[in-house]
Each structure stands twice: as structure tokens, then as C-alpha cells.
Simulated scan of single mutants.
Amino acid sequence: MALSDLHSAAASLTTHALDIAKGVPAANLAVELFRLAGGCKVSIAKAVTNVQGRCEAPLLTQSTVEPGAYVLEFDAGAYHGAASPFDIIPVEFNISDPAGHYHVPLVLAPGGYSTYRGAPPSRVPDDKGSWGAISARVSLPNHPAAPPPGVGGPGLTVHVIDISRGIGAGSLKGELYRCGDGDCRTAVGGFVVNDEGRTDQWLIDAGKLQRGDYELTFEAGDYFARANFGVGATPFFDRIRIRVRVIDASAHHHIPLLLSPWGYSCYRGS
């Protein structure tokens, strides 16, 4: 499987649509990008998502991006094919750093949606000191990148985004367990999330996934304490636990986690 627009060296704006009602990528979803200028919308790009829920090419590249306000519009009504209170989903955002790579995922269902600034694998935008007093970026050794989720066979992967800053949750520690009867758990191994928000190696390698229940734990309190977010000695969300049931061991299971000091969400990605 070829790498997507997200991994294009020239990418300035990319998106990824996930159908959370079905737990699959939102394929064949029409997307249109507008630039806002003088109270008017100027259409500058159109695309339809592929089987990965991505576009075949970046919506903006280094040669076409300009600082300013933009709107991404997703034709959710046509995608769902049924009555929905969200026909067109408009996502307005600003691009301040034309040298950066902006990633805007959409998680949607007939009855709702969510979006956030994702963490692309290259050129994190410069926030111009907006978070000068808060910095948890821990420099980690460079390692060969693991294959993207869904490439190379079934396995288990995670992607953790610090949505309080729109970056990968680099240095977040976690543990993977295999669950047995009752409260019995067997530790599979610990991991540390890299600066992209992923792990350097898949949590379960391709071809080694088994049917059954797994539990992922993430040390969120420790992560945000080191980020100087002022979560205190007893953070509200200290440890995040996510239980995952694998019914089809022939399918890849990718679990994104979006977290801030005061909340989190997860879903089955692609």
C-alpha cells in the first residue's frame, strides 16, 4: 500500500476522515477547501477521500499555501445517504506558519462529528510563542519509523495526539496488557510515544495479533505534569485505560487517543 498525502514532503494541508459509526475510513467523502478573503469564500481545491479516508494529494502544498483563514467543507449529507442534521460540515481554521504542515482530521457519524489539529509526521507549525510557558517536548533518539498502520498485515498500533497543543504526545509512557478471566492481566510490554505521537514499533507486530481482550494504559498525569500544565499532585485523569476487544485477528487494529489535561477520546482508526 502506497503512503498517503500525509507523508508527502511538500504537504502543507492534509485531512483524514474516519467514520466512527462503522469504525472504518470514510471513503468517497467529497471535500472542498476555500480561502476566506474579504468576507468571501474562494474555492481553491476539491477532492474525494480514498479507501484510507485520505486524499490522494495534499490540499495545499508548499507552493500553494498562504497565511490566512481557510474553511474545509465535508459533504456529510451525501456521504451518509440519509437524513442527518449535519449536511455540510464546515471546519474553519487559520494557517499562520506557511512553512508548517497542518493536518485536520474529521471523525464523523450521522449524528455528530469532531475535529482537531492533528500531528503530521513532518514540519510541526511554529506557534510563534503561543505556548512559551508550556513545553513538554522531550527530545527522543531518532529511530527508524515503523510502517504506517494497515501496511504489512494485521497488528495493533496507537497514535496519541495532545489536542491542547495540536502535537504528538511525545514522551508519553504506556503499557499493553493481555486480559484474561476477571481482573487477570498479563503485561505484554511497555512503550514510549515518539514525537509524532506513535510508537517506534507496532505494539503487536504484523501477523501476531490474537483474538481476545487487550488493555492499553497511558500515564497522562505524568505526561502533563512534565509539560508544566499545573495538573497538581493528584491529576484528575492520572492514568487512561482503554480496553480493546479483537474479534477479527486478520484485521489491523489502530487506536488513536486524543487527550488534554481535562479530557480524552478514542476511536478505532485506520
Rank of each mutant, 00 (worst) to 15 (best):
V107T: 05
R123A: 15
A145R: 14
V138R: 14
G132K: 13
T115N: 07
V104E: 06
G129C: 08
V151K: 10
S130F: 06
S139E: 15
P147Y: 06
G129D: 03
K128E: 11
S139N: 13
I134A: 07
I161E: 04
S135V: 11
V124A: 09
H103T: 11
A109D: 11
Y113F: 15
S171L: 01
A119R: 02
L140R: 09
G152A: 06
A119C: 07
P141C: 03
P144N: 01
S164F: 03
L172S: 06
G150C: 05
Y102R: 02
V158E: 00
P147G: 08
P141D: 12
A119F: 00
H103G: 05
P121T: 08
P149E: 05
S135M: 01
G155N: 12
A119L: 03
V104P: 00
G153A: 08
V158W: 02
V151H: 07
P141W: 01
H143Y: 15
V138M: 11
A146M: 08
V104N: 02
R117E: 05
P105M: 11
I134F: 14
A133K: 13
Y102F: 10
P120W: 03
A119Y: 04
A133S: 15
L106C: 08
G150E: 03
L156P: 04
T157A: 14
D126L: 08
A169D: 04
D126Y: 05
G168D: 07
P144D: 07
G132L: 10
L156K: 06
G155I: 04
P148E: 13
D162R: 03
K128C: 09
P120Q: 09
H159S: 09
G153V: 11
Y116K: 05
V104S: 01
L172Q: 04
S122P: 00
P120Y: 05
G150H: 04
G111E: 13
A109F: 02
S171G: 03
H159V: 07
A145N: 11
G118D: 08
G166H: 13
V151L: 08
H159E: 10
P141E: 07
G168N: 05
H143D: 11
A109Q: 13
P149C: 09
S135W: 01
L172A: 15
D127Y: 05
D162I: 06
G132M: 02
Y102T: 14
R123V: 01
K128Y: 12
G118C: 03
P148V: 15
G153Q: 05
P147H: 00
